[in-house]
């Protein structure tokens, strides 16, 4: 079974748990004491990932330490539709959003780590960079809506959407509101409405999609 070294509050770990759930892939989840234990910075963990980051995905002799590579691997294994359309433009756009997700982690993600897990750094700069990234995402998604689209690339959700979703949906944990980004908000709703969607602390499912408990 594919093993995921995991931390429940990590946006990048959730990215992989969500992708696996949407694909119907079962993961062997190994919880790492990221906070406060900093077990991912231990000498023992460096044997697995010298960079000391989470998540880490292990399948046999394959060890992956970059979450976007894990998305590609899971989609190649279990649902190639999730790689997005394969024409040159679409394939390049998917790569664009995979790289862009790194900017989201470096801005919104760091603002959240600052506010939630006491990371030290320039919170104002992280939030400003987060807003700059959200403006780009909002403009792109608005253009997609004008063309009748919902997803970042093509007519179906892809690894591009899953790569960008967690840090955007968690942005308020880092003091960055989505109030000014209507297309981004509707896109996060579309992802949360997907069949087999799973939650994490801070990202809840759409309660309205199920009947109220009393009448169920």
């Amino acid at each position: 079974m594919i093993r995921l070294y995991d931390y429940v509050l990590s946006a990048s770990c959730y990215k992989i748990r969500l992708m696996a759930a949407l694909l119907g892939v079962k993961l062997d989840q190994e919880a790492v004491d990221f906070h406060p234990g900093r077990a991912h910075k231990s000498v023992a963990f460096a044997q697995l990932n010298p960079a000391g980051t989470l998540p880490v995905l292990v399948d046999g002799d394959l060890i992956l330490t970059e979450s976007t590579a894990m998305l590609v691997y899971l989609a190649q294994l279990a649902g190639r539709d999730w790689l997005g359309p394969l024409d040159p433009k679409s394939a390049a756009q998917v790569q664009h959003w995979l790289a862009f997700s790194g900017r989201l982690a470096a801005s919104l993600g760091m603002a959240r780590l600052h506010d939630m897990l006491l990371y030290e750094g320039d919170i104002d700069a992280w939030r400003a960079q987060g807003h700059a990234a959200l403006r780009e995402l909002e403009a792109a998604l608005s253009e997609r809506r004008f063309a009748g689209g919902v997803w970042l690339v093509g007519d179906a959700p892809s690894i591009a959407d899953i790569a960008c979703f967690p840090n955007v949906a968690l942005s308020q944990d880092g003091g960055v509101s989505l109030d000014a980004y209507p297309s981004v908000r509707l896109w996060t709703r579309a992802i949360r409405a997907l069949d087999r969607f799973v939650e994490m602390p801070g990202i809840h499912r759409l309660h309205e999609l199920r009947p109220a408990p009393e009448v169920a």
Binding site: R145, D179, P182, S183, R185, L186, R189, E208
Partner: peptide, 15 residues
Amino acid sequence: TGLSQDLPKAVAMAG
């Protein structure tokens, strides 16, 4: 406080 297209049925938003 917003555009109709950004508030589909059964959705709430801040204004």
